[in-house]
């Protein structure tokens, strides 16, 4: 997909412990890297965060590259000791996260250990 909408990411801090990244646009091959650029910049500027919310209310489309960006965001947020929350997931994105079984992993309390694996 090359004809996606531009992606804008807006960072805000609520208190000293919580960050919020509002994502508007398409999480696709051409744009998804933007969330990690903004995240890395702000995670560095705000040490001590405990939670980072990604507000996905306005995510119109997410392809596999967008999902890779979310997984990378998860890595960055975990890296500073915070927990990732995905807010206002729209049906399309929820479906993608369920299809790939990444939803639990992305929003888990702590890093999933071998004991917690969602085996079947």
């Amino acid at each position: 997909m090359t004809a996606g909408q531009r992606l804008t990411c807006t960072w805000a801090v609520a208190g000293r412990r919580t960050g919020r990244l509002t994502i508007v646009g398409d999480l696709d091959y051409d744009h998804a890297d933007e969330i990690n650029r903004v995240l890395v910049e702000n995670l560095g500027a705000h040490p001590g965060l405990r939670a980072v919310h990604l507000d996905c209310a306005e995510v119109a489309f997410c392809d596999s590259y967008g999902l890779a960006a979310l997984l990378m965001a998860h890595r960055h947020i975990r890296g500073v000791g915070a927990r990732l929350h995905l807010d206002n997931l729209q049906p399309g994105l929820t479906r993608l996260l369920e299809l790939t079984r990444t939803l639990e992993y992305l929003t888990a309390e702590a890093a999933p250990s071998r004991a917690e694996k969602f085996d079947t």
Binding site: L67, A68, L71, E98, L99, T100, R101, T102, Y105, P112, R114, E116, K117, F118, D119, T120
Partner: peptide, 12 residues
């Protein structure tokens, strides 16, 4: 159904 491959430590 199953987990995507190559990004997470565990797959099911």
């Amino acid at each position: 159904r199953g987990t995507l491959i190559g990004a997470m430590p565990d797959v099911g």
